[in-house]
Every structure is written in C-alpha cells, then in structure tokens.
C-alpha cells in the first residue's frame, strides 16, 4: 500500500499518510500506487495507441517518407549532376591548359624559327653586303692602282720629257748640237737604269 512514505519523521508522517490517502481516494485506484498496473485503463490505452500508430504509419508511409526520399534523391541527383558538371569543367580546364601549353610551345618554336630565319636572313644580307663592299673595295683599289699606275706612267713620261729637254739643253749649252734621237736613246737608257 502506498499509504506511507519512507519517513522516519513521525511528526510529518501523519500528514503524508493523509495526503497519500487523499491521492489514493482521488485516483479511485484498484491497485493503489502504480497507475501502470490499473488494468481497467489498459483497453483505453491500447485502443488509442493503435489509433496513434495507424495514423502515424499512414502519414509516414503515404506522405512524409516518399516526400523526404524524393527530396533526398533529388538532392543526390543535383549533387551528382553538379559533380559531373564540375568534372566536365575540370576536363575542360585541363584541355584548355593543354591547348595553352601547346600554343605556348608552338609559339616558342615559331619564335625560334623566326629568330633563326631572321638571323640567317640578316647573315645572308650581311654576307652579301660584305661581299659587295669587298667587291667595291676591290674595284676601288683596282681603280686607284690604275690611277696610280697612270700617274706613275705619266710621271715617268714627264721625267722622260724633262730629262730629254734638260739633256738637249745641256748638250746645246755645251756647244754641241746633239742629235735629238741620240739624246732620246741615252735618256731612255739612263732612266731605265
């Protein structure tokens, strides 16, 4: 019986007993104390529990769970899509990078080629110019040589003339009339020697 609490305090025990009696009277309990064991209430609880479970089951299996499953599947799909898209974009980025590298390499080789070509061209030009300049120089040198030779020849000529005339003068002043031919021959001999 629940008509007592485990109190050693006798003064308060009476109040507690009264209160417990009141509670028991209020509950009109067949088995005082544990409402869990009032078998009269069992059909009521079982009935309402069944109603509750059936309602929850119907709500869950008809509405809630398919909806959540759909949302989750949709999100899964979206995520998978996004992932695929990201993968695709990544592939694209990789391809772009490859293309970029390829282009870079191409450009580099092209630049090399152009540089080499230009260099060769310049070299060729240079060579041609040098050859031309050489030729010009050679021509000029030849010309100069010719001019020098001419000058020399004319100088020799002049020397001849001067020597001839000087010799004729000298011969005349010495009182001898020299044969022009003889003088010439003698001068020529001297000058040559």
């Amino acid at each position: 019986m629940a008509n007592d609490t485990h109190s050693a305090d006798t003064e308060t025990a009476h109040g507690a007993v009264d209160a417990a009696h009141g509670a028991a009277g209020h509950a009109e309990a067949a088995s005082a104390g544990m409402p869990q064991l009032e078998f009269a209430t069992f059909p009521n609880q079982i009935f309402w529990l069944m109603v509750t479970l059936v309602v929850i089951y119907l709500v869950l299996s008809r509405v809630a769970l398919p909806r959540i499953a759909a949302v989750l599947a949709e999100r899964q799909g979206t995520i998978a899509n996004d992932l695929a898209q990201a993968e695709e974009l990544k592939q694209k980025a990789v391809a772009a990078e490859e293309a970029y590298n390829q282009a870079l390499a191409d450009a580099r080789t092209e630049a090399h080629r152009i540089v080499a070509e230009t260099k060769a061209e310049i070299q060729a030009d240079l060579d041609a110019e040098i050859a031309k300049a050489d030729a010009e120089i050679a021509a000029k040198a030849a010309e100069s040589e010719k001019a020098i030779a001419e000058i020399r020849a004319s100088a020799v000529e002049s020397v001849h003339e001067v020597a001839k005339s000087t010799a004729a003068e000298i011969v005349g002043s010495l009182g001898m009339s020299g044969d022009a031919k003889a003088i010439e021959a003698a001068v020529a001999e001297r000058v040559k020697g």
Partner: peptide
C-alpha cells in the same frame, strides 16, 4: 502550508 514529505512520485502517471 505544512512542510512535510508529501511525495507522490506515481501520481503523474495517472490516467
């Protein structure tokens, strides 16, 4: 009103 050990731990389960 009257201090005392009035413990009814099972009352809360009453139907």
């Amino acid at each position: 009103e009257h201090a005392g050990l009035a413990i009814h731990p099972m009352d809360q389960f009453e139907i």
